[in-house]
Design a protein around this nucleic acid. Structure first.
Lengths: 183, 183
DNA sequence: TATTGTTATACTCTATAACTATA
DNA sequence: TATAGTTATAGAGTATAACAATA
């Protein structure tokens, strides 16, 4: 009935991919799947409050976190998307009555984006759900294990950030497994 | 120069969100960010080989992993998307010369999807890159730490899978921080 | 000249519904 | 009646390029 076990990689893995680490592949698979499951659960809870896309929620959260109206380009920078994409997101939110755009008082190039009362209400109900999901997700871990996990994940993130600074690397060979099912 | 440190949550967190766990929020944030960084690096490496979307790569990987042509609905089931969406993905791949569709010999409702030689070549160059990313990402961890990490992630995934079976839960209150900047 | 925001256009992924052909 | 696949349509997020208004 309880079928959640570690994702494992077959023993011939390192023969098929010379230079690759089997435990590395297993860590990667388990990391990505765990994060994916958690994100899906968070998204499910957010949707139980309001049917908005993750990006739309993010815009609301950014505005709420700022505690004051922001110019559109500031939102674009937080989201790491283009200003044109942000315009499109804000159009959707404005149509739904969740944000309002007003001219900036001193710089007439800018538009200030405000949260509506309904949007504030959505964020106030959404955040406890999100944090409850995180709280429940780590229910099976001791405080020591949580801290250990944070450290291990940070080590990985550190390595990946370093990799991202380099060239996409040298090609490596692959040795195809000999026996392959045939049509 | 090396600025990757654990993501932390402010100390007033549990006051603002009664019932939520600060360490849970920290674990969640670090988990999601680490997975996101790794996925971005994997995607970057795949794109250095061929400019295809993650879904398109997944179709190729599914077909390669099967070792034989698959019917379209089988691909849809692996991808967890609708058959209509799969048709669209296959259309794109076919236009690029990466897959070919042929009629199923015995069941004339079905279409068999084959990888082209070019697609096989792309997958053969792509997989070593993906596995090298995973290998490099865990470079800083001992084998014992890797195994420990896999266990911790599996515990979390287990909890989340259980949560996903339940109703999206009871609303919880939020206590807004007192001092808020004003426009 | 640089910045801000919008429009126009295009592309991807995804979905549902309606439909055809086949089993 | 059920299954396989396609088409039609729609809506989301995202991007680039061109543009207007303002600094």
């Amino acid at each position: 009935m309880d079928n959640v076990t570690p994702i494992r990689v077959p023993s011939h893995f390192e023969r098929e991919f010379p230079g690759a680490s089997r435990s590395g592949a297993e860590v990667a698979a388990n990391l990505i799947r765990a994060a994916d499951a958690l994100l899906a659960e968070i998204d499910r809870r957010r949707r139980s409050i309001a049917d908005l896309s993750p990006s739309a929620f993010q815009v609301l959260a950014i505005l709420e976190g700022a505690g004051e109206p922001l110019a559109a380009h500031a939102i674009a920078e937080h989201l790491l998307v283009s200003t044109a994409s942000t315009t499109s997101l804000l159009d959707t939110l404005e149509k739904r009555g969740l944000v309002e755009r007003t001219p900036h008082p001193s710089d007439r190039r800018k538009t200030l984006v405000h949260l509506s009362d309904e949007a504030c209400d959505i964020v106030d109900r959404m955040l406890p759900q999100v944090h409850a999901a995180a709280t429940d997700a780590v229910d099976g871990l001791s405080e020591a294990e949580r801290e250990q996990l944070i450290q291990l994940l940070t080590t990985i993130r550190h390595s990946v950030v370093e990799l991202a600074k380099q060239e996409p690397p040298r090609p490596k060979s692959r040795r195809k497994s000999s026996a392959r099912p045939k049509p």
